[in-house]
């Protein structure tokens, strides 16, 4: 029984990796939906982002439960949990950005920039999803991490220009300004969090080498 567990085991670990991919998949879908909502000014899609966030929460709990049941060496568990928490935070801010967007009326130029940021965030998610797959395969994780960093830099550049332009824009009242500021902040935080998650994945990957 012991030897069977040992040699044929690894099911718990594979299950966790699969759930991490599923969790990441929800983030990808949430970013893509947010992008579509911004691009098409379709506020009906916002509720889908909230649903994805809720489903992500369920998967996060399942991952923690699998880890508690003994998946992975204890040495690796804190970093794996931290990675999952960061992805979950990214889902939370995506949902927050989506909710804030419901009350906003963006001008064409701002809408295009925000859609570009959401698009890059979605691409970063796909790259991070591919990076998770390298844990069970032979592909190089460093290339994916580098691509994520490049994407994040691009988001920073768009954010810099966007904020510079928005500062010259007239705001009708405090709440309109706050909603816009919070929306931009949350939208650009998604890429920051994905980059953080990618760093943790890199730590997990090298910690057994």
């Amino acid at each position: 029984m012991v030897l069977k567990d040992l040699f044929l085991g690894g099911k718990k670990e594979l299950e966790v990796i699969d759930k991490m991919k599923k969790h990441m998949g929800f983030l990808c879908s949430a970013c893509t939906t947010l992008k579509a909502a911004i691009e098409n000014r379709d506020k009906e899609l916002i509720s889908s982002v909230s649903d994805l966030e809720r489903e992500g929460d369920i998967v996060r709990r399942e991952i923690f439960s699998n880890i508690y049941e003994g998946a992975f060496l204890p040495f690796l568990r804190p970093n794996i949990c931290r990675f999952v928490e960061i992805v979950d935070n990214a889902l939370d801010v995506t949902k927050d950005a989506a909710i804030e967007y419901t009350d906003l009326e963006l001008d064409e130029e701002t809408k295009d920039d925000c859609a570009r940021i959401a698009d890059i965030s979605a691409k970063m998610c796909e790259m991070l999803l591919a990076a998770i797959e390298t844990l069970s395969g032979r592909a190089d994780l460093r290339e994916k991490s580098l691509a994520i960093r490049i994407y994040e830099k691009r988001v920073d550049e768009i954010e810099f220009d966007l904020i510079k332009r928005l500062r010259t824009k007239e705001i009708k009242n405090f709440w309109e300004g706050k909603a816009l500021s919070d929306f931009i902040h949350d939208l650009t935080s998604i890429s920051d969090l994905i980059e953080d998650a990618s760093d943790y994945l890199q730590i997990i990957n090298i910690s057994l080498r």
Partner: peptide
């Protein structure tokens, strides 16, 4: 160290 992460984890257990 040249093996995939999951494989290393399993081998280290053994």
């Amino acid at each position: 160290s040249k093996l995939p992460f999951l494989q290393i984890e399993r081998i280290i257990r053994v």
